[in-house]
Design a protein around this nucleic acid. Structure first.
Length: 570
RNA sequence: GCGAAUGUGGCGUAACUGGAUAGCGCAACUGGCUACGAACCAGUAGGUUGCAGGUUCGAGUCCUGCCACUCGCACCA
């Protein structure tokens, strides 16, 4: 579609009325299909030519030499509307899809490297439902960046270090739990979760427990062997469950380098800060002041000498730059941490790292639950947050009930129900702008109709079903493109043509919702096409079957880019 | 108090980055299966885009000021 834009801009520029760059910038796709495929508003010329825009457009239209593929130009109300030749479009797009397959619309490698830090849950707690956001936005962005030509390094920056472990250790010992190796090896994350919750509860009555926890972490950080052993066991127990859920959700990482990984890399960073004269003593803590940016100081070391979140993120950023030499490093973390990333970036800047600006925080809104008629943020500390595995299970069950009712003979239905269920939850999370809070309620998240994962999956399934029933494969040579120029087919082909720009835009804006909305558009147009245009047994069977095939290919890949599991049967 | 995010029919939201009559989904009402999968399609009704100014040929979109809701702001991550 970009080539059309370019060609039209050149044709318009050839008349002398517009500069090439100016025309390129002004040409857009009109909202109303009545107004053609591309439109060029002529209002900007009104002043210099001292003519009404309407007149300018009317005079210009006949002078334009139409580029190939453009069938006509109309002057309406000051706009020049260009119409694509349907047959030309069908041929060029379907040829491209058939040749490139799932890779159609993907960019060639641009030689750039992007690190992505996402999911990054805390060890010692079960994955709560709200962890879905960072996990699935990051997972989708990783796939989108790859399709846009980047080399992607996927990092799970596990929260496996910090005061939380002090809390767990304090509580574990306080409850006098056995500490032999066999018991430690059999620990489950569920037990840790309970332990964590009971700490929070106990600390309400005895605030001094917080100090004990800080002291315990400090001891751990200083290398206490026994505490280290406990820590290892806590970490292993959580990781096991974590991997199970990631596998189920189709989420992958290249590295599980958590915060503990940077433990031995922090002294050098602190030394560096000291050498550069940035470290200051303030209220018994070591900080880097950011007064010149009107920000609170960035805390580097607590009064007991142990490190903080920011210290570890500094070490991590420096390590990643050295190890992966990224062009860009994304942090898919909720909006509430915007200040933290601002501080970390500015400290890196003060340290003289000119790449500080290539760290990009990709913020997103929180998940809200309807509690007593009000939208509220889910909380892990009270232990009240919905567990991700429970939500997935509920989704799977609901879909399974539906399958049993609609299609009881389906093979593998448990697995398919799980895939559709996870897809539904994921889609619900990705379909709108990241920064919007996600208002979660069971009915709409697990709904089957309208703008949902199942709706898109259903379109894919129906396309697959038609191909299966046809019983043979069609090729490009079998197609008569004149038979694909009716409205339903044309609207669908127009959408297929947009794949590469949708990927590019999703990547530029870091918004998976670009592709989610795109998948809805394709699904809608596909449903309409197979509703309006009978495929099997019609005179246009082969041509239409070919469009079905191409649509299925495009839709499948878009679903994969979103991190869904495209199913062929449901 | 300072900073950030959001505000679009009853509800949930989109609008190709400043373009034409603000698009879609739930919910409501209506029509379409002896039909390639009806988890679908089509239609009706529902809007002063939070408020007030400003910028210009043109503003949901940009600027200023309010209002509402949410989140952050020193030893949690």
């Amino acid at each position: 579609m970009n080539s059309f834009n370019e060609a039209i801009a050149q044709a318009v520029a050839a008349t002398g009325a517009f500069e090439l760059e100016q025309a390129k910038k002004l040409i857009t796709v009109p909202t109303d299909t009545e107004h053609g495929n591309f439109t060029l508003p002529c209002f900007v010329l009104a002043r210099s030519l001292h003519k009404a825009p309407k007149v300018i457009a009317e005079e210009l239209a006949p002078k334009i030499e139409l580029p190939s593929g453009i069938s006509k130009v109309e002057a309406v109300a000051g706009y020049l509307n260009f119409f694509i030749d349907r047959k030309f479009l069908a041929k060029s797009i379907l040829e491209a899809v058939a040749t490139k397959g799932l890779d159609y619309g993907h960019a060639d490698s641009n030689g750039k490297i992007v690190c992505m830090d996402y999911s990054s849950p805390n060890i010692g707690k079960e994955l709560a439902f709200h962890h879905l956001r960072s996990t699935m936005i990051g997972n989708s962005l990783a796939r989108i960046y790859k399709a846009a030509g980047y080399k992607v390094v996927r990092i799970n920056h596990l929260g496996d270090w910090g005061t939380a472990f002090g809390k767990l250790i304090v509580m574990y010992l306080r409850e006098k739990r056995p500490t032999d190796q066999a018991t430690l090896d059999s620990l489950t994350v569920k037990e840790l979760n309970i332990l964590y919750a009971s700490f929070s509860k106990a600390a309400e009555a005895e605030p001094e427990l917080e100090d004990e926890a800080r002291a315990a972490f400090s001891k751990l950080e200083k290398g206490d062997e026994f505490y280290h052993q406990l820590w290892l066991a806590f970490r292993a127990a959580t990781l096991k469950e974590l991997m199970r859920i990631y596998k189920m959700m189709g989420v992958d990482f290249d590295y599980y380098t958590g915060e503990s990984f940077y433990e031995d890399k922090m002294p050098a960073v602190i030394q560096d800060l000291e050498t550069k004269g940035l470290l200051e003593r303030s209220e018994e803590r070591d900080v880097v002041k950011l007064d010149e940016y009107k920000l609170n100081p960035c805390l580097i070391r607590k009064s007991d000498g142990s490190t903080l979140y920011a210290t570890r993120d500094l070490a991590a950023a420096i390590y990643r730059k050295k190890e992966y030499n990224f062009d860009k490093c994304l942090y898919v973390v909720d909006l509430g941490q915007a200040l933290h990333f601002k501080q970390v970036k500015l400290v890196l800047k003060k340290m003289g790292y000119d790449w500080y600006d290539t760290l990009v925080h990709i913020p997103f809104g929180v998940i809200l639950n309807l509690i007593d008629g009000k939208w509220e943020k889910g909380k892990t500390r009270t232990g009240k947050a919905k567990l991700l595995r429970d939500v997935i299970e509920a989704a799977q069950q609901k879909i399974l009930d539906f399958i049993n009712q609609k299609n009881p003979e389906l093979e593998n239905k448990e697995q398919i129900a799980q895939q559709i269920g996870i897809s539904a939850l994921t889609f619900n999370d990705l379909k709108n702008h990241r920064l919007m809070d996600v208002k979660f309620d069971w009915d709409s998240a697990l709904s089957f109709e309208g703008a949902t994962g199942p709706y898109v999956q259903n379109a894919h399934v129906r396309l697959c079903s038609i191909m299966r029933k046809a019983g043979y494969d069609v090729n490009l040579q079998d197609v008569d493109f004149d038979q694909l120029s009716d409205d339903a087919a044309y609207e669908l082909i127009k959408l297929l043509a947009q794949k590469s720009e949708k990927i590019r835009k999703a990547c530029e804006t870091d918004e998976p919702c670009e592709l989610a909305q795109y998948s809805l558009d394709i699904a809608g147009a596909a449903h309409k096409f197979i509703h309006d245009d009978r495929v099997l047994g019609s005179a246009e069977e082969k041509s239409r079957l070919f469009l079905v095939k191409c649509t299925q290919i495009v839709l499948e890949d878009v679903l994969v880019l979103l991190g869904l599991f495209p199913v062929r049967n449901m």
